[in-house]
Nucleic acid binder design. Structure first.
Lengths: 196, 196
DNA sequence: TCTGGAAGTTACAGACCGGTAACACCCTAG
DNA sequence: CTAGGGTGTTACCGGTCTGTAACTTCCAGA
């Protein structure tokens, strides 16, 4: 057994985890590679042995974040197997849970704002991952038997995205406080339209 | 006549205008004061004679942007005097017009994302200005005779905020393309609820 | 014409950034 | 035990950043 009880985490994974956390909390441009390696208990050379550049590290962080979000979606399915409407409601509740005062918003959206250069390599990845999330929400709405599934999914997407950014600019007492009411009202409204 | 046809703009105003434009296009942290002064046809010393610091310049830029947005609101009133519902529809159309592919989003929201430090002096100003805009939209909805004016205004706010950030992460073909349909549907829905 | 203040110029300070080179070390697989 | 790859350490490069000092130039108003 190579690991035993010690189970030492590889430097690459420590760097990835630490970078995700620091990028999320302080922003990408506000965090230097020196700060990341120090917080991860390693050094800059090791970082550059595992990642081509800071941009490469950013991209890997975004992929890791999206992967965690994907696991959250899987949890909806296992918690409410087959019941798509319950999964959609779980999504709303989970989204509302993330709208706490200390929430710094969506990492991908924030990265898109910070990395303003149109040809930045991270932009491709952000678009890919965001489109995948959109497809998943559309499929969930459709499978829940909602008529205009795309429109509802897009509306919910924009509401959540807006709530996350509003949280940062006006705070938790702003419009984002009404997110659950808006989302649930929309879902019932769309369901009623389908039944009609 | 001191100005004549030349109409020379004061360095301070040139700096403010240029900084607004560059901050909007490239982001705050991506633009240095040297680049601003060069683009404004002046120099760094002149900038620091008119603004205490870069942070101070940022704040003045945000105020100027909000002032321009306020002028836009005034235009709604003059174009549709007394007709609050028409003004609300004009707001929707104006918002949709800003959702072009090259749109870089809301300067205040972007600044809130970029300036992640909780005690950054710009954060107070951002919150103030955003709350003022919210109050204005709530008043417009209420004066348009809509029952749950606050809820509609907050929903529209989040939708627009979300559309602007979605535009940057997934592009113009993403959920933001449906903004007008969503907004108009919401307005008619809320109006129907009031009539009921 | 004189003068005072605004504006421009140059140079610099001090800090931080991403990224690299050269070298010492340790720990594990063979 | 030994060899070698992953890791840590230190120093450095060139560049950029905000902000300041000292000085010159320009221009409008009295």
């Amino acid at each position: 057994m190579t690991d035993g009880t010690s189970e030492r985490v590889r430097p690459r994974d420590r760097i990835l985890e630490t970078a995700q956390d620091m990028f999320h909390k302080h922003g990408i441009k506000a965090v230097g590679v020196d700060a990341i390696t120090e917080a991860a208990g390693t050094n800059k050379m090791t970082l550059y042995r595992h990642f081509e550049s800071k941009d490469d590290l950013i991209i890997e962080c975004l992929r890791a974040t999206a992967s965690k979000a994907g696991a959250m979606w899987d949890a909806f399915e296992t918690e409410h197997p087959g019941d798509k409407l319950a999964q959609l409601n779980a999504w709303v509740r989970k989204a509302a849970d993330m709208l706490r005062a200390d929430c710094r918003g969506c990492d991908m959206a924030n990265a898109a704002v910070e990395l303003s250069e149109a040809d930045h390599p991270a932009r491709r990845v952000i678009k890919e991952l965001k489109e995948a999330q959109r497809d998943r929400l559309v499929a969930l709405c459709r499978d829940a038997g909602i008529g205009q599934a795309e429109l509802l999914a897009d509306t919910l997407s924009l509401l959540l995205e807006g709530a996350r950014v509003s949280l940062q600019s006006v705070g938790a007492e702003g419009p984002s406080a009404q997110f659950v009411r808006m989302a649930e009202g929309l879902i019932t409204s769309f369901r009623g339209a389908a039944a009609r």
